[in-house]
Write a protein that binds this DNA or RNA. Structure first.
Length: 423
RNA sequence: GUGAUCGUAGCUCAAUUGGUUAGAGCGUCGGACUGUGGCUCCGAAGGCUGUGGGUUCAAGUCCCAUCGGUCACCCCA
């Protein structure tokens, strides 16, 4: 029996990995122009990092975490999301001493024990950013615009941006009481799941797919209508900034993100090209989180996007623009006697930054050409006993079949010229 | 965690009502008057039919279990 990847995981094979690297490269470029810097935190953290921050009522904490005990009896957890570790690090590394806001981005795998599905895996990759230290609505807008502009930059066109406000630490409890009261009164009309939600996680009542529940909830009070003056003013500002950049958005009062730490602005971008798992990126403000981790009262906001889902959407849109820089030069050994000299040339080319390769399969000359040709290599250098005697090689451009003889001591210069011109 | 559906070469798929040594295309490797590619032609390798049981004279085909894929619920990136 052969080994297989664990359930819900997959190998990112070269053809796919190249695309991922492209997506990541584009992200990093853009993040940089917005003033964000990279941060790399451990793949696992003390379990409490997540249980404290994400919220104990969420499924993530309740049943989806990869938690284990190490040999020192520490309870550790493979990170299920990226924000909590970054905030932990912000506090631990005293980043409040840096000029604020501190703007960070990260990329890497996250882990959740879920039933795999289209766009949902047990190990999945996220690219995320966090801006910590400012409550300026312009930062909210920056975060949203960065996400929108990134998706545009990789060629996505069909996107829907949803925004909402969760209110502050005062608004939310008040509202939840109001919501509970409303739902309690309509208890008999709700499905079993929703009855449970009333006590466990009332905000989730809006998510139910059941039609009668939806009808009931359509008339329920919305958090967005019960924000305090400061929060609704903040939200208005955010909207204003978005409008200034001509970004279309839809206010979705029932938009509740999965993590409990959100306050004020939340947002999500959905792609119609995807299946049930269509949220391709999302985030929000978390003004209490730094305090939660024992740091000074510090506001923050950020988002995360799913690399698999993004790649899926870009693929469906048919706009992957990966310029796969294939090997440029292939050294064809026409005669076994020339092998040593050929390898020597190979390293000479490589040390001059010419990407080059040679046959390692003892192929016939014809088979060498065949194989290299399929790899899309454009320039071939022929070397056999005839060339060895002449102190020159034959350089062939496979695009038009033209061949020229080049002196060995001029080869590097010649190829550098060809490769440079081709680019 | 719940439900549906599927599981045959590296990939995409075949295999009459259960019936002999499980086939094809693509890909891989090799060859086509031996120092020149893409096209074409020829050939080769490659499967204990996901795994384990059961029914039967006989199982890729039927039954059960298990593992995995896919899709949806749930949840979320």
């Amino acid at each position: 029996m052969q080994f297989r990847v664990p359930k819900g995981t997959t190998d990112i094979v070269p053809d796919v990995a190249v695309k991922w690297q492209y997506l990541e490269r584009k992200a990093v470029e853009l993040f940089k122009t917005y003033g964000y810097k990279p941060i790399i935190t451990p793949i696992f953290e003390h379990t409490e990092v997540f249980t404290r921050s994400i919220g104990s009522s969420t499924d993530i904490v309740q049943k989806e975490m990869y938690t284990f005990e190490d040999k020192g009896k520490r309870s550790l957890t493979l990170r299920p999301e990226g924000t909590a570790p970054v905030i932990r690090s912000y506090v631990e590394q005293n980043m409040n001493q840096l000029p604020q806001p501190v703007k960070l981005y990260y990329t890497g795998p996250m882990f959740r024990y879920e039933r795999p599905q289209a766009g949902r895996y047990r190990q999945f990759w996220q690219i995320g950013v966090e801006a910590i230290g400012s409550d300026d609505p312009a930062v909210d807008a920056e975060s949203i615009l960065l996400l929108v502009n990134y998706f545009k930059a990789v060629g996505l066109k069909e996107l829907t941006l949803y925004i909402n406000s969760m209110g502050c630490e005062n608004d939310r409890p008040q509202y939840i009481e109001m919501l509970k009261e409303y739902a309690e009164a309509k208890r008999e009309s709700l499905c079993n799941d929703c009855v449970k939600r009333v006590d466990l996680n009332p905000l989730r009542l809006f998510d139910c797919k059941n039609e009668t529940c939806q009808a009931v909830m359509a008339d329920a009070p919305k958090l967005i209508d019960h924000l305090c003056e400061s929060c609704s003013g903040h939200f208005d500002e955010v909207k204003h900034y978005l409008e200034m950049q001509c970004v279309n958005y839809t206010i979705k009062p029932e938009l509740v993100r999965g993590l409990d730490y959100y306050t004020k602005t939340t947002f999500e971008i959905v792609s119609p090209l995807l299946g049930a798992q269509n949220a391709i990126g999302g985030g929000g403000r978390y003004n209490k989180l730094v305090e939660e981790f024992g740091g000074p009262s510090t506001p923050g906001i950020g988002f995360a996007l799913g690399t698999e889902r993004l790649a899926l959407a870009v693929e469906k849109e048919g706009v992957f623009d990966v310029n796969e820089n294939s090997t440029e030069v292939f050294i064809a050994v026409a005669d076994p006697a020339a092998k040593h000299a050929a390898v020597n040339i190979l390293y000479q080319l490589r040390s001059n930054d010419i990407s080059s390769d040679i046959d390692y399969m003892n192929r016939s000359l014809k088979a060498q050409l065949n194989a290299a040709n399929r790899r899309g290599i454009r320039y071939f250098v022929f070397l056999g006993s005839r060339e060895l005697e002449a102190g020159a090689v034959v350089v062939k451009d496979m695009e038009d079949g033209a061949q020229v003889e080049v002196k060995l001591n001029e080869l590097v210069e010649h190829l550098t010229g060809l490769v440079g011109a081709a680019k």
